[in-house]
Nucleic acid binder design. Sequence first.
DNA 1: TTTCTTTATCGTAATATTGCAATATATATT
DNA 2: AATATATATTGCAATATTACGATAAAGAAA
Lengths: 111, 111
Amino acid sequence: MGATKTEHFSSKVNAIAALAKAMGHPARVAIVEHLLKVNGCICNDIVNELPLSQPTISQHLKALKEAGIIQGEVEGNSICYCINPKAIHKLEAYFGKLSSKLNTSNLNCCT
Amino acid sequence: MGATKTEHFSSKVNAIAALAKAMGHPARVAIVEHLLKVNGCICNDIVNELPLSQPTISQHLKALKEAGIIQGEVEGNSICYCINPKAIHKLEAYFGKLSSKLNTSNLNCCT
DNA sequence: TTTCTTTATCGTAATATTGCAATATATATT
DNA sequence: AATATATATTGCAATATTACGATAAAGAAA
């Protein structure tokens, strides 16, 4: 026990959960926000923006990258990280679909 | 160390992270999917739908409830759980805003 | 080549999460 | 009251996450 039983769930459900999990930490949300603010890339300035150590930030960047939320390229001396719009769009599409289904359904309990 | 340093981040960032975290497990996504499918409430049938024990499911329901993703009411012998549309809408709005900002920005790197 | 800068990885400690058996609680039914 | 049904809580073991110091790696600049 202790490990998530991903094998029992559909790949669609696992895919959404993996994306949501990656966004499930304030540091990672803050990284995405920062990437959006600087309109493109992180080149060495993210460490100064967040109240976390460099190894911790590197770890969070890795988690975001492995989930497909961001993508990175070596850019000379530093690394260029930016948001992968497709991943964000998947989340938007999923929650958007949920929202619209909720609007059309008659939730006649728990109100 | 080991605990998330939530106190260093804005309440907006923490709020999104908390919602995303709640959706960051396949069992919890599956619960939400099931709630949507039955168009309203869970009344005792969720345990038969998921490949997890009753205590584990109860735990996931509690996590979803504490995050505000679902809301529950005692309904006679059983419990009536249903989705809180506001929480889903917050997620949709957040990722929607990210998406549209990404569309208008010129991501001239990492392409 | 040496040094500087930037990012990644390793090792480790603290904490959190996941999962379940056992048990408790609470209401319905008989 | 006794029993049945549905959900929650407790206690525990296994695993994962978070965070950071120390160190490594890799390219830039001198």
